[in-house]
Amino acid sequence: MNEPTRQTTTMTNLSSHTLQQLEAMLSHPQWHNGGRLPPEAELARHFGVSRPVLRTALIALRDAGRIISKRGSANFVQPHTDAMQFGSGVQSLAINTVFDMKRCMRFRQIVECAAAEDAARIRDANSISKIELAQRKMDELLPGDHVFEADFAFHMAVAEAAQNPYFTFALGTMHNQIKLTVEFTRKLQDLPQDMVVPRVVGEHDRIIAAIREGNPAAAREAMNFHMKQSVIRLLGEDM
């Protein structure tokens, strides 16, 4: 075996071994909800390999959908949620990749836009009060409280205002998937879990205003804009 071939074989073996070590590391519970990997230089020192060897292993992880790259050279572990059973358990859905998140958000967009439109068409005063209350609770979160549950309560209130139990059922069954997606987005952006993003508040306010005015088209558009912005915040691209 000539020297170049021997070097290539050695690098391939090292990368394969490093990949196994990375996979073992990511199987630990601390990575279940995803997160930012240490810098490449730090990982290379930890595994005792060169950065080219490490990068080959990282590429394999990316190709497998286990990690994604964001903001230049930063690498993020894909979160994983336990399968959620529907009905008698004939089919299950789980968030394993960003592609899964995008499909979840696409379905959520369809459901929530229709719910917002119907809520504005019905324009029930009591339901609108509940939406406004949910928004106030989100605005008044205490330090350490998680934004997600308050945000989800707002969206559930909009769904309930449509007075169609299928909307609340569909959105309710997606709770775990949506939570994982939102929390992963916050990790990508380095946002504390108790920080209310002003842009999100503004988007909610436009939805409330359209429902309060009884304008179905504006309510649908406001919710559609909000859903699209959520995907942009996650992936940097539109649905």
Rank of each mutant, 00 (worst) to 15 (best):
A161G: 04
D151R: 07
Q78G: 04
R121D: 08
F99Y: 08
Q91N: 11
E112C: 13
I207H: 12
M156A: 10
E23M: 14
S88Q: 13
I207F: 02
W31N: 00
S50Q: 15
D194Y: 14
D82L: 14
M227K: 10
F99T: 02
N13F: 04
M239A: 11
H28L: 00
N2P: 08
K187Y: 03
R199Y: 03
V200T: 11
R212K: 04
R106Y: 10
T185P: 06
A24D: 00
A209Y: 12
G72A: 11
A125K: 15
R212D: 01
Q78K: 12
E112D: 12
I208H: 12
R220V: 01
M227Q: 03
G65H: 04
G48K: 15
G214N: 11
D139Y: 08
I67E: 00
H28K: 11
L234S: 00
I178G: 00
I59G: 13
E140D: 04
M223I: 08
A24C: 07
G89H: 03
K102S: 05
R62V: 15
R121P: 01
G202W: 14
D145A: 09
F86D: 09
D82M: 12
Q163P: 12
G202R: 11
G35M: 11
T181Y: 10
M84H: 13
G34C: 03
H80F: 11
A114V: 02
D145T: 01
T81E: 10
P216Q: 08
A64E: 14
P79G: 00
T8E: 08
F152S: 02
R66F: 06
H80C: 01
I95R: 00
R36I: 13
T185Q: 06
E23W: 14
M1K: 10
L141Y: 03
D194V: 06
